[in-house]
Amino acid sequence: MVITGIICGVLLGFVMQRGRFCLTGGFRDMFIAKDNRMFYALLIAIAVHGVGIYILIDAGLVQFSAGEFSWLGVIIGSFIFGIGIILAGGCATGTWYRAGEGLIGSWIALATYMLMAAVMRTGPLAPLNGSVQEYALPNNSMAESTGLSVWVFVVILLAVVTWVLVREFRKPKVAIPSLKPKRTGLAHLLFEKRWHPFFTAVLIGVIAVAAWPLSQATGRMFGLGITAPSANILQYIVTSDTGFINWGVFLVLGIFLGSFIAAKGSREFRFRMPDVKTGLNSASGGLLMGFGASLAGGCSIGNGLVMTAMMTWQGWIGLSFMILGTWTASYFVFIRPMKKRTTTAAPPQAA
């Protein structure tokens, strides 16, 4: 039943909001602050997802075909998407859950993201999208391309994640001052206590695994996905064609609802209006997100979490160029202006 899409989305939106699982900030912090924690959390989510999904595949409960590797679209689209999420202040999923917090800038980014994704899929830019997708290699599966078992790649990923966990938890603990809890019991754990990003990542990985059989039960042969369902919402509004409504649409609407519930429960929901510059950045970032994700065949969730866990070239190469795009945009949006301000503020040298 498609109602399971809402349930899955509510859980995902709730977990991501409470865990502040923001890949945009994580990729940016890797470059600016040299903080890799959110990237490590993503690797954990991918590992949990990969193990779970291939257990289901081996058991015959889930079907998956990697298909072709549209290398040109993945490279160009992922890089553009990475630039877009910096301008928009959040990736595709992050934009949905931050909109649930009342952030108007995310509403703006979400609107332009949905618009451009629809234009790329069935609108005037569909021929361009299709022509770029034609530049493809016949095999997208890393296992089939190398002749190795997919479990070899899963085990390598698990080894990396284990190293990350050992490395991170051996670091000296930094005391974080905390206020006296205002709530007790389950309410404190759900809405007040800080969620560790690694714990959040495990939950996201489990939800990603569950999404596959739930989605395939309705005839949609995929797991978590954001771009196509987002475009489908706008296409349905314009055409009233119920063919656009599927499990994925209920998923993204559930993300919004789950984030809203989490934000209200933690008293973090409030409407926040951006200034003009931020609003323009959100709009342009949303356009770039929709354009790039359509070319790449996935966003930070579709490629960065799902297709990586499926051990495809599309996923891992897409994730790499996505990160490269965020670093490029971070330099021009954050670092370069900061250097200019520092240079301007510096006192003139004495003669």
Rank of each mutant, 00 (worst) to 15 (best):
T4K: 05
L11W: 02
M16L: 15
R20V: 08
C22G: 13
G26V: 04
R28Y: 04
K34C: 10
R37L: 10
F39V: 15
F39E: 09
A41S: 11
L43F: 11
I44H: 07
A47G: 01
H49G: 01
Y54F: 12
I55D: 09
L56R: 09
L56V: 04
Q63W: 08
S65T: 13
G67D: 04
F69W: 12
L72Q: 15
G73L: 07
V74H: 05
V74Q: 04
A88L: 04
A92L: 07
T93D: 05
T95G: 07
Y97N: 03
R98S: 11
G100E: 04
E101P: 00
E101A: 12
L110H: 03
A111K: 05
M116L: 10
P124Q: 09
N129L: 14
N129G: 14
N129P: 00
E134N: 11
Y135M: 14
P138C: 08
P138N: 09
T146G: 14
S149D: 14
L157V: 06
L157K: 13
A159R: 02
V160D: 06
W163P: 00
V164Q: 14
R170I: 02
K171C: 01
K173I: 12
K173W: 08
A175Y: 13
I176F: 11
I176E: 12
S178A: 15
S178I: 11
L179E: 15
K180M: 14
P181D: 12
K182G: 11
H188K: 12
E192F: 06
K193Y: 12
R194V: 13
R194D: 14
H196I: 04
P197H: 11
A201F: 02
I207E: 14
A208M: 00
A211W: 01
F222M: 07
L224G: 01
L234N: 04
Y236I: 08
D241Q: 13
D241F: 12
D241E: 15
T242W: 10
T242A: 07
T242G: 01
V252I: 08
L253C: 09
L253F: 06
F260T: 15
K264Y: 08
G265S: 11
G265R: 15
F269A: 07
F271Y: 06
R272D: 07
P274E: 09
P274V: 08
D275W: 03
L280R: 13
N281F: 00
S284L: 08
G285I: 03
G286N: 07
G292Y: 00
S294I: 03
S294H: 07
L295W: 15
S300A: 15
G302M: 00
L305R: 00
M310Q: 12
Q314H: 09
G315V: 05
I317S: 10
A329L: 01
Y331N: 00
F334H: 12
P337L: 08
K339T: 01
K340R: 13
A346G: 02
A346W: 03
P348Y: 13
P348S: 09
A351W: 05
